[in-house]
Structures are given as structure tokens and as C-alpha cells.
Design a protein around this nucleic acid. Structure first.
Length: 100
DNA sequence: CGTTTGACTGGCC
DNA sequence: TGGCCAGCCAAAC
């Protein structure tokens, strides 16, 4: 069967191991699409799909949600639980934690 | 159909 | 170091 763009993006997300992260840009290169579309696909993820959406961050090593939002807190908590650390400026070291 | 909208990026200032 | 900008393109309107 033919895999559509979103399905291919989700397959890549599913490959990110625990304790590692990937950027929207890295994923977009693998599936050959615009980075914005990766973000668009993320927004479409439901709880039932059981995907590690929180392991996806932006190219600056930061979470793409406002610092004071519930979504930010949730994503950050999930990552820290897996051992991903944040700097005092709320940045994740891509050298240490990037999967790709 | 034409327009608007992003969980983005790289580059410039 | 940090913020702004244009380009990007599938989806939603």
C-alpha cells in the first residue's frame, strides 16, 4: 500500500529511541518535505497513535511551545524523565542527544 | 478555486 | 547573543 506523507513522518518519529531527540529539519530531510509540514503532521498526532512526539524539537535545540504553556511543561517533563537535560537557557544539546 | 496558516529554518543585522 | 524576515508547502478555510 502507498504511504502518504504524514505516515512516513510518523514512521521516522517512531524510530527515535528513548533518551534521544530529532529536529523537525532532520525529519523533513529524511522524508523529503518542507520542515513546516513536519510540524503540521505533529499537530495531527493523537494519543491513540502512541508516538513519541515529544522527542521532536526545533533546530535551535528548543521546544517549540511557549515557555509558560502546559504543552511546554508536559513535553519537557517527558524528556527529562528519559534523561534528556536542558541548559539554564532551556536548550537541549543536539551534540549529546540528537539521534541523527 | 484563491487565501491563509503554521509544533520550521537559515541567514542577515 | 538575540530577534526579525523571507521562503517554504501541505492543509484548512
Amino acid at each position: 500500500m502507498t504511504l502518504n506523507l504524514y505516515q512516513r513522518i510518523y514512521e521516522v518519529v517512531a524510530q527515535i529511541p528513548k533518551g534521544k531527540v530529532a529536529t523537525y529539519g532532520q525529519i523533513s530531510k529524511i522524508v523529503e518535505c518542507n520542515p513546516r509540514v513536519v510540524g503540521y503532521a505533529m499537530r495531527n498526532i493523537t494519543e491513540k497513535m502512541n508516538l513519541p512526539w515529544y522527542r521532536v524539537i526545533n533546530s535551535r535545540g528548543k521546544i517549540s511551545f511557549p515557555l509558560d504553556s502546559d504543552a511546554y511543561f508536559e513535553q519537557r517533563s517527558l524528556l527529562e524523565t528519559e534523561g534528556v537535560t536542558f541548559s539554564e537557557k532551556n536548550v537541549i544539546s543536539l551534540d549529546k542527544f540528537s539521534f541523527f
